[in-house]
């Protein structure tokens, strides 16, 4: 199996050290497009789609295998192995963060630093833990997805997703941007929002930056504090931003925070 093809891995950049970007639930690697240009000079930029998302090999999505985030973490490690990468910088968003955390616990040598954008180890409230959601809310999300896939399922096909170069498909592509096979998306939503990885956090020893937005309903501030408290070698930076995607809504602030964490000197061009 070609893991680079399976995860639709794209590589660019002039630098030596690899920087691996992993998207979260609901989108794909194109989410990083406002951020990655800032690292083309200094790093080798490795982008990928989680299996089931974007232009990954949808055939490879076996619901049984991908019933936990650990399978996605194994995929990331397989890609790093294939590329012979050690000491990489990992940048994850949302559920992609936890996938990176699991990978770094399993094979620490492959990661030098982790940047976690809007992470959450557990979305559902628990005794003395505020994740932000009740189980019924997650059911409601699945229902919202069902209502929306009603119209999409016919038009979103891998054929369209697989032909980004054909201009006549651009319109459909805009529509299909950040959407995937409905059955897979539904399953991934369930795995994402019902997962509980709190117990894994103390096992992570890689230096980690937690980037949290001040107003984010998906990953509330309390979750950011919890992450920081549980991950031994971590720092927390709260961006004065709303929403769950600071790399899209506040790319400059996001880039600045990562630069600072990596000890890079901002160039005037950035």
């Amino acid at each position: 199996m070609n893991v680079l093809k399976r995860n639709n891995v794209t590589i660019s950049g002039a630098g030596k050290q690899a920087m691996v970007f992993v998207h979260g639930f609901g989108c794909d690697q194109r989410m990083w497009r406002l951020v990655t240009p800032a690292f083309q000079e200094s790093h080798q930029v490795v982008l990928l789609d989680l299996v089931g998302a974007g232009q990954s090999d949808l055939q490879a999505y076996d619901p049984e295998r991908y019933n936990s985030l650990a399978a996605h973490a194994d995929d990331i490690l397989a890609v790093l192995r294939e590329l012979g990468l050690y000491g990489a910088i990992f940048v994850g968003h949302s559920v992609g963060c936890i996938i990176g955390v699991l990978a770094a616990i399993k094979e620490p040598a492959r990661f030098e630093k982790l940047v976690l954008v809007a992470p959450s180890p557990r979305y559902i409230n628990d005794d003395k833990y505020t994740g932000g959601f009740e189980p019924a809310d997650i059911e409601e999300l699945l229902e919202a997805m069902d209502n929306n896939y009603l119209g999409w399922s016919g038009s979103i096909t891998p054929v369209i997703m697989g032909n980004p170069d054909r201009p006549e498909l651009t319109d459909e592509l805009n529509q299909s941007f950040c959407s995937s096979d409905p059955t897979i998306a539904r399953h991934f939503a369930r795995v994402t929002f019902l997962s509980d990885n709190r117990a894994d956090l103390p096992h992570l020893h890689t230096p980690t930056l937690i980037l949290q937005c001040a107003q984010d309903i998906i990953a509330p501030l309390a979750v950011g504090y919890y992450m920081h408290q549980q991950i031994p070698n971590s720092e927390l930076l709260v961006l004065d931003e709303s929403g769950h995607c600071p790399h899209l809504s506040a790319p400059q602030a996001t880039i600045g925070a990562i630069y600072h964490f990596l000890g890079l000197v901002p160039t005037p061009a950035v």
């Binding site: 979260g24 639930f25 609901g26 989108c27 194109r30 989410m31 497009r33 949302s94 959601f133 009740e134 809310d137 997650i138 059911e139 409601e140 999300l141 699945l142 229902e143 919202a144 997805m145 209502n147 929306n148 009603l150 119209g151 805009n174 529509q175 941007f177 950040c178 959407s179 929002f193 984010d216 309903i217 998906i218 929403g243 769950h244 995607c245 899209l248 809504s249």
Partner: peptide
């Protein structure tokens, strides 16, 4: 609804910032 809010944050919000529009989203 909370479910719709989750969907908006994970789907619509990024889509608006990426392609400046969303169409026919059921909420």
């Amino acid at each position: 609804t909370v479910g719709g809010r989750l969907h908006y944050e994970t789907h619509c919000a990024p889509l608006l910032l990426l392609v400046n529009q969303v169409r026919e989203i059921s909420y």
